[in-house]
């Protein structure tokens, strides 16, 4: 996408966001008669978002200058999706599976995903993946006295 298309999409997203925010803000009850109410500032903000996004959209569409072409990128979609997927699994598993186990698996998988053939050392990665969560868990349990989630397996 070129810069103009990105700006149009960005403005459209904010217009939708502003509209939804306004819809929900209007339903906030006003309970103290002498107060402007809890919905006042959200309504004000949503109107500001709608006006600003509308102005941005209008200015972008009226701009006659040729849009800046998107820079050529050899970014790795699989790497991005893989990273987000691993993070998603990690944050979901953080409490039910427990900090230790989820962190060990996440660390190993994420380091492996980010490494390349030249610097891939699975034994070292495994050692780091085990040692770091154990160290953090011990620090939190015995020094900071704030236990991290233990999960269904009890550790």
């Amino acid at each position: 996408m070129n810069s103009k298309q990105l700006d149009v999409l960005c403005s459209a997203i904010f217009l939708v966001f502003g509209g939804l925010m306004l819809k929900f803000s209007l339903s906030i009850r006003h309970i103290i008669p002498t107060d402007v109410g809890s919905g006042y500032v959200p309504i004000f903000l949503s109107i500001c978002i709608l006006v600003t996004a509308g102005a941005k959209l209008a200015l972008t569409l009226l701009d006659k200058k040729p849009p800046k072409a998107a820079a050529k990128s050899d970014s790795d979609l699989a790497g991005g999706l893989g990273t987000v997927g691993l993070m998603l699994l990690y944050v979901i598993a953080f409490e039910p599976v427990g900090f230790l186990l989820s962190s060990m698996v996440y660390l190993f998988a994420q380091i492996l995903l980010m490494s390349n053939r030249d610097n891939r050392r699975p034994v070292l990665f495994a050692a780091i993946s085990v040692a770091l969560p154990v160290g953090i868990a011990l620090l939190f349990a015995y020094v900071i006295k704030m236990p991290l989630p233990v999960g269904i397996l009890g550790f």
Binding site: M87, Y90, V91, F94, F99, S103, Y106, L107, Q110, I111, M114, S115, N116, N119, F125, I128, L132, P133, I136, F140, I144, M146, L148, P149
Partner: peptide
Amino acid sequence: HILLPIIMVMCCVGAFS
């Protein structure tokens, strides 16, 4: 490739704590 996943774990610990 080692540091960033470690930071992610520390970020999650920080957010939790």
